[in-house]
Design a protein around this nucleic acid. Sequence first.
DNA 1: ATCATTTGACCGGG
DNA 2: CCCGGTCAAATGAT
Length: 331
Amino acid sequence: MDMSNWEQKNLLSELVHGLKAAKHLQAELGTASSPPPPWLSSSSLCLTTEMRETLLHQIVSSYEKAILMLNGSNVVHSQTAEMVNLAANPVANNGKVPESPTSINGSPRSEEFIDVGGSKDYNLSSKKRKMLPKWTEQVRISPERGLEGPHEDVFSWRKYGQKDILGAKYPRSYYRCTFRNTQNCWATKQVQRSDDDPTIFDLTYKGKHTCSQGIPPRDKPDTTPNTTLINYQNDLLANLRTNLSVRTTNGIESDGFSFPVTPPFYSYESDFGNGGGTFCDMGNYSRPSDFTGLISTNTSTGSSPIFDVDFQFDPTAEINTGLHTFLHDSV
DNA sequence: ATCATTTGACCGGG
DNA sequence: CCCGGTCAAATGAT
């Protein structure tokens, strides 16, 4: 109800995102058949295959997200989410980072837990748990010092287990939402370090957050802008710039669009609880995957590694209504 | 005191 | 029975 406004913004944002990526790709494919510009070596077109893959990934994940937003509020339809993921992933999977569906869920109260009192929460049978939506994501830890183990995430998790897996080099860790008991949030997450590349971690998410972490901030019209948030955005953008300039010297890496952002992203734990309206969800701002960039070679300069960068910064909350777009920001 | 992590036990599906 | 996932008591952190 009052959620619909926020969801619509998200949905619109995703669709616009996907559309832009699709148009870009369409344009590139249109020019691909024409002879390449003389300043490019004959083998290279305007977009590397990597960039094409990234574009495709953006398109797929945007529409995926949009679909999930449409039926994602109902647990019964969760299989659809999984099927969509499975169907979409083979396209975007090799080395790419599959996007997690943004966990937007306004309608909790799955009738499973009418639980009260001290009765243990065994309300979700294992069969029902299997029906929960499931998706995976790969992250590469930044070569920053010391950052091992716990991967910064928008959500707060609580570890509840670790197991050695049969053929795997590293153990698998099991996390559940911190607010499982207090808010009946059944989101879980598994972390598995990759065998071959120890800087890669496979994350498997199961279930969507129904806790306040997954609930968007309440829409207060005419709220004074959150300066913390704005500063934070600026920091992120600055971070992006530095990261990008480093990367461009080597060319774009395979994960060039999943920008590592120095943790901690944001801590909002003090905003919970009794305050009620003060909760500020940074989730859709702070995840690196919500930054997207279209990078193309600058056609005006002949040789050197100068790129045109088209940044998009996905806004979803009430602070801003439009897309922050930085066009042709040469780095 | 509360809250998180560790770690062997336990359980269910294949 | 084996394996992956979860529980829960013990332990650690604050």
